[in-house]
Design a protein around this nucleic acid. Sequence first.
RNA 1: GUGGCCGUAGCUCAGUUGGUUAGAGCGCCAGGUUGUGGCCCUGGAGGUCGGGGGUUCAAGUCCCCUCGGUCACCCCA
Length: 432
Amino acid sequence: MAEGSDRGPLRAPRGTHDVLWPQSSRWEAVVAGFAELARRWDFGLVLNPMFEESRLFRRGIGDESEVVGKEMYEFEDRGGRMLALRPEGTASVVRSFVEHRPPVPWKAWYVTPAFRYERAAAGRYRQHHQLGVEALGTDDPDLDVEVIALAAAFYAWLGLTRVELIVNSMGCPDCRPAYVEALRAHLDAHAGELCDEHRDRYVQNPLRVLDCKKPECRAATAEAPRLLDSLDEACAAHLARVRAGLDAVGVAHRIETRLVRGFDYYSRTTFEFTGLALEGAQNAVGGGGRYNGLVEQIGGPPTPGIGFGIGIERVLLACDAEGVFPAAPRPPDAFVVDLTGGEAARDLVAELRRAGLGAARAYDGRSLKSQMKQAGRSGAAVALIVGADELAAGTVTLRDLRHGTDQETVPRAAVLDRLRPQTEPPEKDPTP
RNA sequence: GUGGCCGUAGCUCAGUUGGUUAGAGCGCCAGGUUGUGGCCCUGGAGGUCGGGGGUUCAAGUCCCCUCGGUCACCCCA
């Protein structure tokens, strides 16, 4: 183990990253856009702790899952409590539901960091960020449709077009066991054909083999029984209703019987959004499903639920790959250039800001040329220049920085009125 | 966690079979213009060559370890 060596430069820990302006403007916009969609879909914001008792995740997500089994950031606090940084959002949200018992249906959205101790790569981080929703209290397939449609609307709002939605049903505790047995029987007969990894492990979790991308496993399961065919009547009807709903609201999707998601809590509807423009293996931009047994598992009353998580870094990567949703910096409305020692700038920016305008200025008594350069770089629409002449005359020189070199002399008292009409930004609708 | 590739100014990179004070473009700062940005010209600042150890008269160049990135596997967001 590398003891915190004191050599070398300080850097962000492996798998973490900083987001600086102007890149961060995309994050602001992503969250604002998602918040607006959540409002339309009638979801309210829920805030949860970033760490929880470890047992929440062990019980909720499943001890066997990769994420809990080997990727959790677990630690003991000074009081001897075993805690873990949240590896995903659902367990915490559901725990808060169980703890507070809000009236159902309870529709919550969140934005949160998620922590997983795994080897970093492009689009995979030890701390990444997820947007998500959880809806508890009803098994109504129309809700599945709403939840999936919300995610689809989000991708569309970003401008993404190359996103594919795959849907499957994991069945329920009534019909899945029989299927798992049938699948296991099939795998027993083909065990020799499986890839190295699954040859021995398929017994524990046969469903995993369906998800394996190795050609051997693909071939060995090509003729395997399909979960879709062994759904009981209720699960089959549920899925049919979800599919019809997606068609009705115009959400294109494809059934993928191999889709098996990583967490233990899923039942019935599962889905995943894949960024087709993304290179490499990290191309899932979002996913989720129904988890009708989860609330009970962590100590609440039997309550069905459904939700999804969307990885912000992934989605932004997909935007880069498709060339959409660029960073949109918000420049100041005016840049104050001061040649009098700073007092005029100090007072003028204060006045502009009180009036709701974005005001920037230079510091350290730079030269006029230097201040003008900064003004140009800032993206401000106008420069407000105050020198000895203007100070004496009670005016400011207002220079257009966007178009040409037009400038005019404006009485100091009229500056605000002169600025307001041309800078009032139209209230921007975050959706198309 | 396993294997491959990579790591030189803030950024993108060059750096000859190891050989004096490590370079370019962009960016930044200043000047050209005693009060005017964007283009242009001139100058300047800025580097533990990711970190540590080793080989050598000599290491950015070679070797080992380590940290970080990246690709594949794995896993998923």
